[in-house]
Every structure is written in structure tokens, then in C-alpha cells.
Design a binder for these strands. Sequence first.
DNA 1: ATTAGGTATAATCTGAGTGGATATAAAACA
DNA 2: TGTTTTATATCCACTCAGATTATACCTAAT
Lengths: 299, 299
Amino acid sequence: MDIKQTELGLLLALNALLDHENVSLAAKQIGITQPAMSAQLKRLRDLFNDPLLVPSGRRLVATTRARALQNDLRAHLQGLNALVRDHTVFDPASSETTFRLIGTDYVHAVLAAPVQKMLAAEAPGARAAFLAFDPKTLWSSLEAETADLALATGMSLPEAKRQSALTEDFQVIMSKTHPLARQPMTLEEFCAFPHILVSPEGGGFIGATDRVLKETGHKRRVAISLPSFLLAPALVSSSDALCMMPTRLAKLHEANVACSPSPFPSPVFDVDLMWHPRRQNDPAHKWFRGQVRRLAQGL
Amino acid sequence: MDIKQTELGLLLALNALLDHENVSLAAKQIGITQPAMSAQLKRLRDLFNDPLLVPSGRRLVATTRARALQNDLRAHLQGLNALVRDHTVFDPASSETTFRLIGTDYVHAVLAAPVQKMLAAEAPGARAAFLAFDPKTLWSSLEAETADLALATGMSLPEAKRQSALTEDFQVIMSKTHPLARQPMTLEEFCAFPHILVSPEGGGFIGATDRVLKETGHKRRVAISLPSFLLAPALVSSSDALCMMPTRLAKLHEANVACSPSPFPSPVFDVDLMWHPRRQNDPAHKWFRGQVRRLAQGL
DNA sequence: ATTAGGTATAATCTGAGTGGATATAAAACA
DNA sequence: TGTTTTATATCCACTCAGATTATACCTAAT
């Protein structure tokens, strides 16, 4: 074991450099200035006797030798990182961590406020960032630690740790002046009005509700497809359309829209907490996901 | 990955501290002074919020938490160490490495001079250290990298890399004035004189030669048992005793003792180079073991 | 040409290590 | 019981590697 302390530091820099192929960004990542990183790169080139990153136009691209280092390098650095994280006590009151949470707009809408309030009370120096949910990049975000936690439904991420957070069903929202606003509606009434459907993937006109209706021989007309639940209340208020909305989210808009129980057994969905197994023993992570779960279950 | 460069350096220090449970030795290992290491220990205690090493009398002993870190810590640091070693070019002419080679006195006797000469010519800044062979600690020495290479016979180290270096047989040495010194001796003459036997383990009076003799119905009298071949020439010179000595070693003493072929088919032994698989791709190690093998085969 | 996006160099500044010494504490010795 | 030995922690003045700020210098795109 003849590696020097300074060389270890250089390896951390190299890892950042390989991640970005960009000196300035790598510098920002590890919290030093660009010239300092440039100097570290020079020392790295000396150490390995290899340019490591060569200019190609105005980009830098990694050499073969540098690429060969990348995987092991990252693995061992992550290992050491996890080591200190897992054995460092976490004190919410003094923490300045940023917790990054991936979720759908539904999740953001129902959890952003409680999380914000919780942090203000328990960890005033910490911050939360809510990131958009994208099933294609979810795992890589957790893997690369650009996000700490995800709240999602029905995702199968075999490598992720998972914990159930809440179960949700739907209610019907409509304009406060809607003819059906006063008392519970019948299934026939429900089907008689135009509907707004929320399809996060965009452009869909058939949802869980339509599948349930079909089983009972009914049918509704979906007039508009929106990419987010957050757009529905405004639209509902200015038309006679109905919209099936997750109950907790509907309750948040009670001031602006009328809210009525589903005239048929509502579809339900489970929202799971998911995270990278690497974070399993990270005290800060343990604390945060515990808080989020508690908040979700208290909704 | 929010670990800082300075923290990585501290981990290297922690590793050394856990290895030695001694600030001064740990400091020496990583090449800083005792006050500097004491300061790093303080920073480590801060980082982990744990004393890590607590005084017990005048020793330091690791806390449970520190112990829990040790294995992963060492593994990842060794991984990073291997990473830079394996991708660093080795230039014999400018190297200041110390190569540590484990071998029996026989190995030392026949190889020390050639290795020394080779280094002087090819790697004048490098040094070689010859360490005593101890079958009980051989593997742990390679594992802990207190030695780089071993030359031994018939050791079975399942995890070690191995390469055959040379095959050796025996000749008979005796005083220059010995009655048998002039011409090849017969087996009967061989058995008529007292013998010196070398038993590295100490105190043995039966060796490979005795087993071979027994098969042909002969027998010799072992008058003295020595722990090292290096002691035999002096003893032989001042008596009429004979000694079976590895041929290459015998040749080294030709100026002082007479040397005669074995009057029966000599036992032979193979000497293998052995090293830790972790060093397999280390350029410096590759170079050195290649040189040693070349020297051994040229003997 | 000029600008935008990036890296490297130059001149200073700073923080951690050094050498050298001391305070302190426990163990070993007498 | 006191004295010596062994070891860690702390102090100081000094040095130096590596940080910073500011600037020069590339290259591609406009």
C-alpha cells in the first residue's frame, strides 16, 4: 500500500473528470475552482503518464486508459464514500443536506408542503428538491445519486429497496356549480358528462377508470387528455367536465372545485418509496425516508 | 458522492492507524510525522464523532466502530492502490522501489549477488531486500505486502500465483585435502565418512539423501545437523565430513571446498516464484519477477 | 471578426506538514 | 516508592504544495 494521500485526492478528481469530461464541471462537483482542477488534471497526467483527457475540438474526451480506470475507480470511491456516510452521525438540527426526491406531480402536490413543513421544524438547515418522475431514467438517477429517494407506483426496479408509503383511490371533481355537485352521483350521471383524463406519458385517452367501466358495460367520453393532474381543476371549473382525481389531491383543491365520491368502486394505486440499496445504512437517508413515510401515511 | 478530497486522505491515515493501533508507526507508514498523524487522528475523530482509538494504558485500542470500518476500508484502499499501480508505467532506470524477496538461505546465497548486479545495471535507484523464509507466515507476508515475491520449494499456497524458477540437484562438498577430493567417489566411500545434514527447521537428522540411500540398502552417519547451508563449508574444511549441498550453492564455494558429483542419483527440488495475485498486473512487479526468473534460469 | 464556452498559465495567498520541544500519563523497573 | 521508559497530544516558527483570483489562450459557431 504505497499510495499517497495526495494521490487519493487526485483519484477523486479523476473520477469527477471522467464523469463530466469537462474540467469546469468536475471542479464544481468536488467543490474546487476550475484552475485548481486543471492543475490536478496535470498532476494526474503526470502520475499515469497519459493525457487521460484529450482535447477534441472544444470538448475533452477520455483516453482508452482513462476509460479503463473508470469503473473500478468509481466503485471503490463509492465504497469509501458509503463507509464514511454510514458511520457518520446525522443530526437533523444541524444538517445542511439537500434531499432530492423523485415523484409524479401527484406526489409533489400532496407531499411538498408536508415535507417542507417537516424540514422547517426538524431540520431547518436542510433542503428538499422535488424532481420529475421519468420511468426511463429513474434507476440511473438513484444509481448516480442525482436523486436520493423516489415515490412511484408500480415500478419494478429489481435492485432498489422498496417500502410502501400510501394507498390512494379516486374521487370525482367538477365545477362548484356543476349539476352533480350537491349529492352523490349515479354511474349513469357520471357517464353522461364529458371527462378529463390525466395521462402522464401524454396523449392517452384510456385509463384505469375506462377499463373498470368497460367491465360493467359502461362507457364515458374522454374529451381532453392532460399531462398533469395539476391542470385539471382550472379546466373543470370552467366547464361541465368531470375528472377522476386521486382523493388526497382532490381534497387539496376543495376550495376551488366540488368533490364527490366515485359512483363505482374506484381504482386504487399504491405509492412506494424506493431507493438505492447503497443508501440503506446512510443515517441521513434513513432519517429522511422515515420522515417521508411517516408524512405519507399521515395524509 | 459527497466525500471530500481531504476526507479520503484521512481514510488512508485511519487505515494505517487501525493497522498499527499506534500513532507513531502509522505516521511512519504513510510518511508523515507523529504530530501530523496525531492531528489527522483528531480530524478523524471529529469526522466520525467517535474516538476511534482509545488509550488503554499506554496502548491505543480501536473502538468497535473503528473495527467495523477496517475491512471495507482496507479493501477499497487496496483497490485504488492497485488501480494506480497497474496503470502507472514502470521505468527501471528511474525507479526507487524496494523489492522484498522471501527465500531460504540457499535462495539468498545463489540469487543475492545476481539480483544485486542486475539492479545496479538496470535499476540503480532500486533496492532489494532479502527476507527469511518462514512457511507459517509466507502467505500473510505476501497478503500484507510486507514482501513482494517468494522463492520456495513445494509450498502449496492455493491463492498465490506461481511460476517455476529453477530445478536444483545436489553435489558432495568436502575439504580440499579430503581423500575423496580428487576423483569421483563410490557410494561405499560416500557412506564411509561422517556427514553434515542441513535441516532448516532445525535439529533433523534424516533428509532426502537418507531416504534415497535407504532404498538401495545403504546408510550414512549424520554427525552434525545444521540449520543453514551457509555454515557447512567452514565445518567441512576443518574435518573429514561430507555434505550434500545444492549444486549451484556448492559451486559458489569452490574456492574453499572440493566439490564432487553425487555417487548416486541426486534428489532434486524445484524452486518456484510465488506472489500475491493482486500484484499480477503491477508493472513494477511484473518487471522484477521477470528479472528474477531470468536470473534464476541463467544460473 | 466576434462571441461563447471552455482550458491553461501567472501571481499571490493559505493551510497543513515539518522540525524541534514540551506537557502528560501509564507501565516497567528498581 | 520514586525513576525511567514509552507513547500521545500540543505548541511554535517556518516552509511549501496546492488553493484562489485574474487573465491569456484556444476552438467552434455566429
